[in-house]
Simulated assay, not measured.
Amino acid sequence: MNARLIRKLHRWIGLVFSLSVLMASGSGVLHNIMTRTQAPPPAARPSGGGMDVNAIKVSVAEAVSKLAETNPEVQAVNLRGIGGQPWYQIYTKASRTPQYVSAVDGRLDPSRDEAYAAEIARNFLAGAEVKKTDFLTAFNSEYINIFRILPVYRFDAGDGLDTRVYVSTTTGSVTRHTDKQRQFEATVFTNFHKLGFIPNKDMRDLALTVLTFGTFVVACLGIALFFATRPKKR
């Protein structure tokens, strides 16, 4: 084994790929800090403002018949308490979003989904006033794919912390709760750990693969150098 050549390769390749080691170690330190400074993900809990079950006058079959679709193929029906009133949340195969029919009078209300999301957000933030600022059908730089659930509404509290929550009416829960400080830490972690500053996923995955493989090669060269330069036995 040519120890001189191995030493040169180890030195220069190590210098080139030391950036990935620094970023990985830095993100590891930040991850430990985030476990101390950030609250765990929101716990799943019953949502909505409650309901008067005695007010239910419309059956599920009657509610489905109120939909605009002819002979809809129903996939799921949930009973939701929205504004203190019972509503059927109906999912059909043809519709990509839930439809809401009043369990009291059979009224179809297309705006009820957003109202339900706002109620979930207000309850989560202890009654704080919230404003809808986005409706996401795809992941973005703040609501990334580790949160898994789409679509979601974004609501901002408008306080000094820039508090915002992401709400899924499918699960009836807050899927993400963040603010200015938490998002700063999360953004730094994503950029260090996952190269989040590269917008194209294919390019990002390629860069991660190259950096990881380069680090692997450097480690292998270090092991080879150890054996190539070890003292010879007499």
Rank of each mutant, 00 (worst) to 15 (best):
residue 70 T to K: 00
residue 93 K to Q: 10
residue 167 V to L: 05
residue 215 T to W: 03
residue 23 M to E: 00
residue 180 K to F: 13
residue 46 P to H: 11
residue 88 Y to H: 09
residue 22 L to T: 04
residue 111 S to D: 15
residue 126 A to S: 11
residue 98 P to D: 11
residue 14 G to V: 04
residue 198 I to N: 10
residue 114 E to A: 06
residue 145 N to I: 00
residue 227 F to R: 12
residue 134 D to W: 10
residue 87 W to K: 09
residue 127 G to H: 04
residue 81 G to N: 05
residue 8 K to A: 14
residue 80 R to S: 11
residue 137 T to W: 10
residue 193 H to D: 09
residue 12 W to T: 04
residue 182 R to W: 05
residue 100 Y to M: 12
residue 128 A to P: 08
residue 78 N to V: 07
residue 60 V to Y: 09
residue 222 G to I: 13
residue 11 R to D: 01
residue 88 Y to A: 03
residue 12 W to S: 03
residue 139 F to H: 07
residue 56 I to T: 14
residue 205 D to F: 03
residue 216 F to L: 15
residue 113 D to Q: 13
residue 140 N to R: 03
residue 53 V to N: 03
residue 163 T to M: 06
residue 82 I to V: 14
residue 232 K to A: 12
residue 147 F to W: 04
residue 140 N to H: 02
residue 14 G to A: 05
residue 31 H to A: 04
residue 225 L to I: 13
residue 208 L to K: 12
residue 173 S to F: 11
residue 47 S to P: 08
residue 102 S to A: 08
residue 75 Q to G: 06
residue 184 F to K: 05
residue 36 R to Q: 02
residue 193 H to I: 13
residue 179 D to R: 10
residue 189 F to N: 02
residue 39 A to R: 02
residue 36 R to L: 01
residue 169 T to I: 06
residue 233 K to R: 15
residue 87 W to I: 12
residue 78 N to D: 11
residue 175 T to P: 07
residue 29 V to D: 01
residue 58 V to A: 12
residue 193 H to Q: 08
residue 105 D to K: 04
residue 185 E to P: 06
residue 54 N to P: 01
residue 227 F to C: 02
residue 67 L to P: 00
residue 212 T to Q: 09
residue 163 T to L: 11
residue 84 G to V: 10
residue 36 R to V: 06
residue 52 D to L: 09
residue 21 V to Y: 07
residue 171 T to S: 08
residue 19 L to K: 00
residue 38 Q to W: 01
residue 102 S to Q: 13
residue 208 L to Q: 00
residue 213 F to H: 01
residue 15 L to Q: 04
residue 32 N to K: 03
residue 228 A to F: 07
residue 209 T to M: 13
residue 37 T to V: 04
residue 60 V to A: 12
residue 24 A to T: 11
residue 108 L to I: 01
residue 21 V to C: 01
residue 174 V to M: 14
residue 23 M to I: 09
residue 169 T to M: 12
residue 157 A to I: 11
residue 41 P to I: 02
residue 30 L to N: 01
residue 35 T to S: 13
residue 92 T to L: 09
residue 176 R to H: 14
residue 179 D to N: 15
residue 140 N to C: 02
residue 212 T to P: 04
residue 100 Y to P: 06
residue 72 P to Y: 03
residue 155 F to R: 02
residue 153 Y to T: 03
residue 203 M to E: 05
residue 109 D to V: 13
residue 49 G to K: 14
residue 69 E to D: 10
residue 218 V to A: 15
